[in-house]
């Protein structure tokens, strides 16, 4: 079984998406510069990891399209569960699964393994919300999708880091 990523259509589904303002970079505090003080992983940190992911269709980031937002990320340090919701720009967006895959891969590669990542579409924001959520939660389907070189290439292009 593989992920259904909605390829096959070369026309833009949402030709003129609304572009939103981006949040300012997180300022570095004195506590963050003190090596003796621990900085717990919080929602903003997780959001910072995914905000710069490029949209597969447009030369815009997921943050600019408001697909991801800080308020849609929750971190439970006790259970070590990170819950991330994302909002496709249109309810019938065929790129939703690919976007979810990009977010999952980026988080898998950036966060410590002890964290469990719950990734899902913001409730009510996609026609096939349940099916896509199921695909994204299925580790085997995600792994199988990443075995596909073409798909992996698309994902890597989307999650390529801006220089820091």
């Amino acid at each position: 079984m593989v992920l259904n990523l909605g390829f096959g259509s070369f026309q833009l589904e949402n030709a003129a998406p609304q572009v939103f303002a981006t949040v300012k970079d997180r300022p570095v505090t004195a506590a963050e510069l003190d090596d003796a003080i621990e900085d717990p992983i919080d929602a903003r940190e997780v959001f910072d990891l995914i905000r710069d992911i490029n949209d597969p269709e447009h030369p815009l980031t997921l943050e600019q399209l408001k697909v991801v937002a800080e308020e849609l990320v929750t971190v439970d340090p006790a259970t070590r569960v990170i819950k991330v919701m994302f909002t496709p720009t249109i309810p019938h967006c065929s790129m939703a699964t690919l976007i979810g895959l990009c977010i999952r891969v980026k988080l898998m590669r950036s966060l410590p393994r002890e964290f469990k990542i719950d990734l899902m579409i913001t409730p009510g924001k996609h026609d096939q919300e349940r099916a896509i959520n199921k695909q994204l939660q299925d580790k085997e389907r995600v792994a199988a999708a990443l075995e596909n070189p073409n798909l992996l290439s698309v994902v890597n292009k989307c999650i390529a880091e801006p220089e820091y």
Binding site: V28, E32, E38, D39, D48, L49, L111, E161, Y164
Partner: peptide, 15 residues
């Protein structure tokens, strides 16, 4: 434990 380290490491890890 430090956020700045994690940020740099995450970026390098993805690369």
């Amino acid at each position: 434990r430090k956020r700045l380290i994690r940020r740099a490491a995450a970026c390098t890890s993805v690369t």
